[in-house]
Simulated scan of single mutants.
Amino acid sequence: MQIAMIENATRIIGKSQGYLGLPLRDEMIVCSVNGEGTPAMVTAWQPTPDELERLNAGASVHLRILGVAHPPVMVEVGPTPTE
Results as ranks from 00 to 15, higher is better:
M1L: 07
M1V: 11
M1Y: 12
M1R: 10
Q2P: 00
A4W: 03
A4Q: 13
M5Q: 14
I6G: 05
N8T: 04
T10E: 07
T10A: 11
I12R: 01
I13K: 06
G14D: 06
K15R: 14
G18S: 03
Y19H: 08
L20S: 06
L22S: 00
P23S: 01
L24W: 09
L24M: 13
L24S: 00
R25W: 01
R25I: 02
R25F: 03
R25Q: 11
D26K: 11
D26E: 11
E27S: 05
E27M: 09
M28A: 08
I29S: 03
V30H: 13
S32I: 09
S32M: 09
S32H: 15
V33R: 15
V33K: 14
V33Y: 14
N34A: 12
E36D: 15
E36S: 14
G37E: 10
G37I: 06
G37F: 11
G37P: 04
A40Q: 13
V42W: 05
T43E: 09
T43M: 09
T43L: 01
A44Y: 02
W45I: 07
W45Y: 12
D50N: 13
D50C: 01
E51M: 14
L52F: 07
L52K: 15
E53R: 15
E53N: 09
R54D: 05
L55Q: 10
N56C: 03
N56F: 02
S60W: 05
V61R: 12
V61W: 11
V61T: 12
V61Q: 04
I65T: 05
I65K: 12
I65D: 00
L66D: 14
G67V: 01
V68A: 04
V68W: 07
V68M: 09
A69R: 09
P71E: 06
V75D: 02
V75K: 04
V77G: 02
P79Q: 13
P79A: 13
T80C: 06
P81T: 10
T82K: 13
T82W: 05
T82C: 02
T82N: 10
